[in-house]
Nucleic acid binder design. Structure first.
Length: 495
RNA sequence: GGUCCUGUGGCCGAGUGGUUAGGCAGAGCUCUGCAAAAGCUUCCACAGCGGUUCGAAUCCGCUCGGGACCUCCA
């Protein structure tokens, strides 16, 4: 079964066929590094990390480009013609680039914790001013952009007369043109729907670059068009980002690129849905963001505890990427417990070797396991339904635990089935979903724990329950749980 | 106001017209020096009202909620 993805442009699930196999070009809108990343930001980067991982698994040669927006856009277009990054920098009395560096580093750190693979190219907006200016010049030459008082605007009305502006976001151009909003600077534009490509910088504006139209800074949408074109070409396979970027950002990107490159930029547009808090989108407008460092530490009124990055990743992957995901500390705690159970079973599976036979004793179980494992691929192929993949894994958990406890005989399933189970489980959990055991421990700790397990076993065999209980009790206080298994072994895990 | 999405059991969430989603929480049992874990069993659903259909959580209509975008936003 082939991979099918939901294409926001056509509003349909389509079979994924790369433009130039085996190469795949993927562009994902990256962070604006004027502040710390919050939980909501984790969604796209984890979603597209899985997309990236799966495409690699399928054998594609992927170039994954994710930009860093370090030039800032308008805080509110027209209202304050100020660069987002520089205004915050003034507030904090630091250099803009100092701020950019700080939040870029923090972003990288947080997403390493979340086990996302690095993109192949991570271009910065400030590093591509030349390309952006070049593209704007092309737009002017083509007659789709005009200069006013040192600023350059895209002529949406003209574009809409020849192309479908609004196709991606379902916008009606006539409505956009009629929108009556009293914004400062609007009078510069020919139409209210026009958007800025280049903005003249007022004297107090720190971030500024020389351009054919005077000193200024790039508009909001041009950076993605310029960088995507530079690194992926005029037409590439996947463009990803949050649903909230569909309009006007992606719509405008399509318009710019279409004029400059004479083709619509991306074949497949993929958009992840939002993370909500009490039903409301997490974001600036509601002032309800929880930063990733707060998530990790638990230092936030809405959090009862800190959560490991892997729990956050797991939490996000338990939902389909196009559904909203409602955050609560309770939901995270539930995810944490579930993930612990999944990984404990996975650890057992990894170590398990069965001396089974060619023919399964329990034919029914054998068929069931085969089906559950085969469905991993089927589900991920169905527009990356990670939730269903995880659900199947959970269905396998009791089987693994029962095999460990001897409730299911090792020869119940065939050697082939077992091998397949072990391999697929590992590939999908670690390689594709990118999850790993958060309680992975050092060699040293493992050695110490082996010793304690041995001592406790000895104590138990002598019925010295005082000693055995003492070991267990004190370890519990240290956050390590010891469990007596049915076979007489003792296992342990972090709480 | 415009465009679009959505309403699933205590909570989070899958769901392609006919079959158990899954996780967490709850109840019972088994195992067990104790504990924990685990295994088995089990309770609790498809916002409301109509319609289509042999059959609807799933399709259609209406009503009532919720949300996103239209402005920086993942």
């Amino acid at each position: 079964m082939a991979l099918r993805v939901y294409n926001s442009l056509t509003k349909e699930k389509e079979e994924f066929i790369p433009i130039n196999p085996p190469h795949v070009g993927m562009y994902v809108c990256g962070p604006t590094v004027s502040g710390e990343s919050h939980l909501g930001h984790a969604r796209p980067y984890i979603t597209f990390d899985v997309v990236y991982r799966y495409l690699l698994y399928l054998g594609y040669k992927v170039r994954y480009v994710r930009n860093i927006t370090d030039a800032g856009h308008f805080e509110e277009e027209g209202r304050q013609a100020e660069d987002k990054i520089s205004s915050k920098a003034l507030l904090e009395k630091v250099e803009p680039m100092e701020l950019v560096h700080k939040y870029t580093s923090l972003f990288h750190w947080a997403f390493r914790q979340l086990n996302t693979l690095e993109p192949n190219i991570e271009p910065t907006a400030t590093g591509h001013i030349v390309e952006q200016i070049g593209m704007i010049e092309q737009l002017i030459k083509a007659g789709y952009a005009y200069v006013v008082n040192g600023s350059v605007y895209f002529d949406v009305k003209k574009y809409a007369s020849n192309y479908d502006y609004g196709k991606l976001s379902g916008r009606v151009v006539d409505d956009l043109l009629e929108t009556t909003r009293e914004l400062e600077g609007q009078d510069e534009k020919r139409n209210k729907a026009d958007f800025a490509l280049w903005k003249m910088a007022p004297p107090q504006h720190i971030m500024r670059w020389k351009s054919p139209w005077g000193e200024g800074f790039p508009g909001w949408h041009i950076e993605c068009s310029a960088m995507a074109t530079k690194y992926l070409g005029a037409r590439f396979d996947i463009h990803g980002g949050g649903m909230d970027l569909m309009f006007p950002h992606h719509e405008s990107e399509i318009a710019q690129s279409t004029i400059c490159n004479h083709t619509s930029p991306a074949k497949y547009w993929m958009h992840n849905n939002m993370i909500t808090v009490n039903g409301k989108k997490m974001g600036k407008s509601y002032n309800n963001q929880i930063s990733l460092t707060q998530m990790f530490s638990g230092n936030h009124p809405l959090l009862t505890q800190g959560f490991s990055p892997m729990v956050i990743r797991f939490f996000i992957l338990q939902t389909h990427y196009r559904s909203t995901l409602d955050f609560s500390s309770e939901a995270l705690t539930a995810a944490e417990k579930g993930m612990k159970r999944l990984f404990e079973a996975f650890e057992v599976l990894k170590k398990m070797e069965i001396a089974g036979e060619k023919e399964p004793v329990d034919k029914e179980l054998d068929v069931k396991i085969n089906k559950l494992v085969d469905e991993f691929e089927e589900f991920i192929n169905d527009d990356f339904n990670t939730a269903k993949v995880l659900a199947n894994m959970f269905e396998i958990v009791p089987v693994i635990n029962s095999m460990k406890d001897g409730l299911i005989k090792p020869n119940a399933i065939s050697t082939t089935t077992f091998k397949k189970l072990k391999e697929s489980f590992t590939i999908f959990l670690e390689q594709i979903l990118g999850l790993k055991d958060p309680s992975e421990s050092s060699e040293q700790l493992n050695g110490i724990m082996d010793l304690l397990v041995e001592i406790r076993k000895e104590a138990k065999s002598k019925k010295d329950f005082f000693t055995s209980d003492k070991i267990r009790k004190q370890l519990t206080e240290l956050g390590i749980e010891m469990k007596d298994e049915k076979d007489g072994n003792i296992s342990w895990s972090r709480l």
